[in-house]
Amino acid sequence: MFGGSIVALVTPMHEDGSLDLEALGRLVDFHAGAGTAAVVIAGTTGESPCISAAELDTMLRTALEAAAGRISVIAGTGSNATAHAVELTRVAARAGAAAALVVTPYYNKPTQQGLFLHYHAVARDGGLPVILYNVPGRTACDLLPETVARLAEVEGIVGIKEAVPGTERVARLRELLGDRLDLLSGDDATAMDFLLAGGDGVISVTANVAPRLMHGMVEAARHGEPRKAEALNDRLAGLHRALFVEPNPIPVKWVVMHMGLIGAGIRLPLTPLDPVHYDEVRAAMLRAGVEYTS
Rank of each mutant, 00 (worst) to 15 (best):
Gly4Asn: 08
Ser5Gln: 08
Ile6Tyr: 00
Ala8Ile: 14
Glu15Leu: 14
Gly17Thr: 06
Asp20Ser: 14
Leu24Ser: 03
Arg26Tyr: 09
Arg26Asp: 09
Val28Pro: 00
Gly33Arg: 12
Gly35Asn: 08
Gly35Tyr: 07
Thr36Gly: 05
Thr36Leu: 03
Ala38Asp: 13
Ala38Pro: 00
Val39Asp: 02
Val39Trp: 05
Thr45Ser: 07
Ser52Gly: 10
Ser52Ala: 15
Ala53Ser: 14
Leu60Ser: 06
Ile74Asn: 00
Thr77Pro: 01
Thr77Asn: 13
Ser79Leu: 07
Thr82Trp: 06
Arg94Gln: 15
Val102Ala: 06
Val103Leu: 12
Thr104Val: 15
Tyr106Ile: 08
Tyr106Glu: 06
Phe116Gly: 02
Phe116Ser: 03
His118Pro: 00
Ala123Gln: 03
Gly126Asp: 07
Pro129Trp: 10
Pro129Glu: 12
Val130His: 07
Ile131Leu: 15
Leu132His: 07
Tyr133Ala: 09
Arg138Asn: 11
Glu146Lys: 13
Gly156Ser: 06
Gly159Asn: 12
Lys161Leu: 12
Val164His: 05
Gly166His: 04
Gly166Tyr: 12
Glu175Arg: 10
Leu177His: 03
Leu195Asn: 01
Leu195Ile: 09
Ala197Cys: 11
Gly199Arg: 02
Gly199Asp: 03
Asn208Phe: 08
Ala210Arg: 02
Arg212Thr: 13
His223Gln: 14
Lys228Trp: 11
Ala229Thr: 03
Ala231Leu: 08
Asn233Gln: 11
Asp234Gly: 08
Arg235Thr: 01
Ala242Gln: 02
Lys253Arg: 11
Trp254Ala: 04
Val255Asn: 02
His258Thr: 01
His258Ile: 02
Gly260Met: 14
Ala264His: 10
Leu268Asn: 10
Pro275Gln: 12
Glu280Val: 04
Leu286Gly: 01
Glu291Trp: 00
Glu291Ile: 01
